[in-house]
Structures are given as C-alpha cells and as structure tokens.
C-alpha cells in the first residue's frame, strides 16, 4: 500500500513573467546600489583621515561628557525647555486657528463650492513646502529674536499640515445630519454648529495634538536661529563643545519629549 514512489528530478521552468519580474527586481536593486555608490563618490565627503583626526579630537571628550551630564545647567535647560513647550502650544494653536477657515475653503464640499478648493489646496501645499526655519529667520528679522518669532514660524508652517488634514476630515463627513438640520428649518449657522462641528471636532483635536508633538521638536531647534526656546543655549554649548552641559540639555529634551509624546498619544487614543 505504501509502496516507494519514485520522485521525478525535474523542476518545471518558471513562466516568463515570473522570470521577468525577478530580473526587474534585481535590476531595480542594482540601480539603487549604483546610485548609492555614485552619490557617495561624488558628494565631496571629507577624507577618512580628516574624519579620523576629528573623531580623535572630539570622540573621547564627547563620550566622557555624555556619561557625566553637568547638573549645574539643569535649571537653565529645564526653564528653556518649559518655554519651548509653551512656544509649541502657542505655535500649534495659532496654526490651528489660521488653518480652520482655510480648510473649509480647501475642502470644497461645504463652503464656497469647488471653485476655491484648488487654489486653497495649492496654498496649503505651498505653505507646507516652505521650510519652517526660513520662516523663523524671516520673523527673527521682523520681530526681533525671541519666542514670538518661533511661534509665528510654527504657526504659519503648521497651517499647511493642519489645513490639509482638516480639509480631508471635512471632505469625509456624513452629509446626513446637515440635511436633517436643514430639513428641520435650521439656517447655515445652525447646520455648521450642530451638524459639522460635532462631526469634525474629535479628529481635528487629535490632529492638532499630533502636530503639537511635531512642533515641540521644531520648537527645540528653532532657537538655533534665534527664534526662542532651548535651541539657542544648546547650540552655544555645542559650538564650544561643552559636552557635559550638552549632555544635560539632551537628557532634558529627550525626557520632556518622550513624556509629552506619551501623554499626547494617550489623549489622542481617547479622542478618536
């Protein structure tokens, strides 16, 4: 019954499309690798000996400093980080405030109709593409150095992201409740307040919080160009290679951001 079966030692050839896909995959990887090598070869990297001598000079003091954070600057770092935190709050709030009306225009399904949707969307894309740090430099020149410049830069830049996600949310809303309120004799304002706002609010809030997490990171570096917050005292210490103090600053930044991220993502989970 269980007689030995001979097994043919032939492998059917793979069909042409399988072999073609395999070849394309290999070719694709080869192109990526070739581009990689080309990029490295042509991008004017320093010679290895220069890197090595730089490392020799800096690596040991760096490591020594990193493991022994200077507690004398803890208070300064903490206070700067608190300012940074509030910069991020105001920057995000400003961005949300400005993005709110824009997003209804860009959505095109509620206000103004589709005529303004495309220009609205393009404006949002343009804002998003414009580097935040350049905005910060402009506002530092205009409003003087300090948190105000950073808040303005974050506020303007956040419009791009928030306007985009807000308008996506608006485009996805259920039109049923709006019809119901119109049918009950409600005017435009009633429809907006009772049918649109309740639908979009949780998602808006969740995205604002997410943007806040991003802005907190931005706020931590905008000071490097004078726009307030922890960036300025940090980059001064970096320039003078005071590694132990840098270490303290890094610890404060990482700890602060990790805690805020955790809190924010917990609130976001409860919102949506």
């Amino acid at each position: 019954m269980s007689a030995a079966r001979p097994i043919p030692n032939v492998i059917p050839p793979a069909p042409a499309h399988v072999r073609r896909n395999r070849a394309m995959l290999i070719a694709g990887i080869a192109v990526l690798v070739a581009l990689f090598i080309l990029a490295i070869a042509t991008m004017s990297l320093p010679t290895w000996s220069r890197v090595a001598s730089g490392l020799q000079r800096n690596a040991l003091p760096l490591l020594r400093g990193l493991v022994r954070p200077e507690t004398k600057v803890l208070e300064l770092a903490w206070n700067s980080m608190v300012v940074t935190f509030f910069m991020a709050i105001l920057g995000t709030a400003l961005g949300a405030l400005l993005a709110f009306p824009l997003s209804f225009i860009a959505a095109g399904n509620l206000l103004g109709g589709t005529r303004w949707a495309l220009p609205g969307k393009s404006l949002l894309v343009a804002v998003r593409t414009f580097p935040e740090i350049v905005l910060a430099v402009i506002f530092v020149a205009a409003a003087g150095p300090g948190p105000t410049a950073g808040i303005m830069a974050m506020g303007i830049h956040s419009i791009g992201y928030l306007g985009k996600v807000f308008s996506d949310v608006i485009e996805g809303i259920d039109q049923g409740p709006m019809e119901a309120i119109r049918a009950a004799g409600g005017n435009q304002l009633h429809t907006f307040l009772f049918a649109v706002v309740p639908q979009v609010l949780p998602e808006f809030a969740s995205n604002v919080l997410y943007r806040f997490e991003i802005n907190l990171r931005s706020a931590a570096v905008l000071g490097m160009v004078g726009a307030g917050g922890i960036g300025l005292p940090l980059i001064q210490r970096l320039q003078f290679r005071r590694w132990a103090e840098v270490s303290m600053f890094l610890i404060v930044i990482v700890a602060f951001i990790v805690v805020v991220d955790a809190l924010s993502s917990r609130i976001r989970r409860r919102l949506v």
Partner: peptide, 27 residues
C-alpha cells in the same frame, strides 16, 4: 524612542560639532 525624540536639526548640529562642517554630519 531616543532616536525619534531628537529633532533632525539637532542631530545635525550635534554631528557638525563632532565631525566638522560639511555633508558628512548631515548624512
């Protein structure tokens, strides 16, 4: 978590201080 909580520009500033100016700290 640590890698993600340090902003990209801060990483860049850090490595400029260690490796000197140029594309290498950026990479």
């Amino acid at each position: 978590t640590v890698l993600r909580s340090i902003p990209d520009l801060l990483w860049a500033a850090l490595f400029v201080a260690v490796l000197g100016l140029g594309a290498l700290p950026g990479v």
